[in-house]
Design a protein around this nucleic acid. Structure first.
Lengths: 232, 232
DNA sequence: GTAATAGTGTCTATTAGACATTATCCC
DNA sequence: GGGATAATGTCTAATAGACACTATTAC
């Protein structure tokens, strides 16, 4: 019984994942998801948090949720082990700190990690793929997007999360309306504004996520002409 | 590593679950979900199917999907074990056939099984609760409803599934349009009609589910006045 | 002033939801 | 015929989506 954690963040307008490399063992040339054995006296969530802390140096992910269990025989050459995959979403991942088993930790763009030529350890590529699909689907029905940004954020920042994950441009005006109006109510204005960027522009309003951010369906993914559905 | 299966069906207009009783062990006075240890040479899905067959006598569930893993320490008095919960949906559950460890198998209405006075073994009540929530949510976004009915079905039958699971009456006319029109396309007419019931009435059209029944969002759950949201 | 970004207003096509009407069976 | 169930038609309010316009900053 192991727990593997898919740690996602956005760097340079790209959805990215933290991968580690371990010494020894098979797959020592492969990158892998951080993870390890669950201790008998901890919950699954606690095990995921511990692995986050030990192997990636992350203490407080903005979002942590169980994804799925993987138990195909042969998914791990060494032992027959079932793994519970977790999804963690964090905001800053500038300097990943490897620890525990991990000798190296690095952030890769998801698109690159899923490329055919790249080899990840075990069935971690499949897990990563599933995690990314899940995030895309969940953005449509929850406030998960706010986990990618800071405690306060502008709507442009939040919209950028959607656009990055979905790979689709969104209309800024309609995006704003979707979030503000209706019963969604998963962001609220702080009343403050942020300073504009170096390019100038009107100072944006600062928002925070509301406690009930995990209900409702804030934004709809547009499915229009020529939209090659990547599946769910 | 065990696999537990929540087997849901609809009997007498009620969402119902199959529970079993085992001899010996603790909790021998409690009803429990069918399940057991995963074998090293099988996948999780195969383990779930095997338990379905061995303990409940079910060979081909209309729907089988993984739900979630449960691993709180203390959830099982005897051993510290992580359990992967599965959801199975079947159509007929008239004569449940206990086998293997199970000495008794019976179908209970979900509402009754979740009542405060009823005690289920381990954390099975929580698992059942989670499963029911999931089904309710998934009806809104997939064709899962068709798993509750036969290979061909009338729209009244299908609508009844939604109404039973959600506990809300749906407008027959709008229901039909939701399914037929738009891009959902998760049911199609067989061109045939079924004989009307003993009360008479126009003979209903027979439908079948399409292969891509697990995409799209066929019907929306109406959230109107005084709708006490049960949460997701 | 221009360029850039944020936010508002408005129009149209689509859709949900309510409800009336027609169709086809049983008795 | 009357009663029951299935299917179709129609209207209204709400919403998605497109896009023009105003507001506030940097330069």
């Amino acid at each position: 019984m192991t727990v593997d954690v898919v740690i996602l963040t956005i760097t340079d307008e790209q959805l990215s994942v933290l991968l580690i490399r371990r010494g020894g063992a098979p797959y020592q040339n492969h990158w892998a998801l951080p993870g390890g054995f669950k201790h008998p006296d901890e919950t699954l969530d606690q095990a995921a948090r511990r692995e986050l802390r030990e192997e990636a140096g992350i203490d407080a992910p903005a979002h942590l949720a169980q994804l799925q269990a993987y138990g195909d025989p042969g998914r791990d050459q060494r032992t027959n082990v079932v793994s519970i995959a977790y999804l963690a979403v964090v905001r800053d991942l500038a300097a990943p700190a490897p620890g525990g088993d991990a000798t190296e930790a690095k952030v890769f763009p998801v698109s690159q990690s899923l490329a055919a030529r790249v080899r990840l350890a075990f069935d971690h590529k499949r897990i990563l793929k599933d995690a990314v699909d899940r995030v895309g689907a969940e953005l449509e029905h929850s406030g998960l997007a706010t986990a990618f940004v800071g405690p306060t954020f502008t709507l442009s920042e939040l919209r950028s999360v959607y656009e990055t994950v979905w790979g689709t441009p969104l209309d800024a005006a309609n995006f704003r309306r979707s979030l503000i109006s209706s019963d969604a109510r998963f962001v609220e204005s702080t009343g403050q504004t942020a300073p504009p960027g170096p390019e100038g522009g009107r100072p944006p309003e600062l928002f925070r996520s509301t406690p009930q951010w995990n209900t409702g369906s804030p934004v709809k993914r547009s499915r229009k002409k020529g939209d090659d559905d990547p599946g769910r």
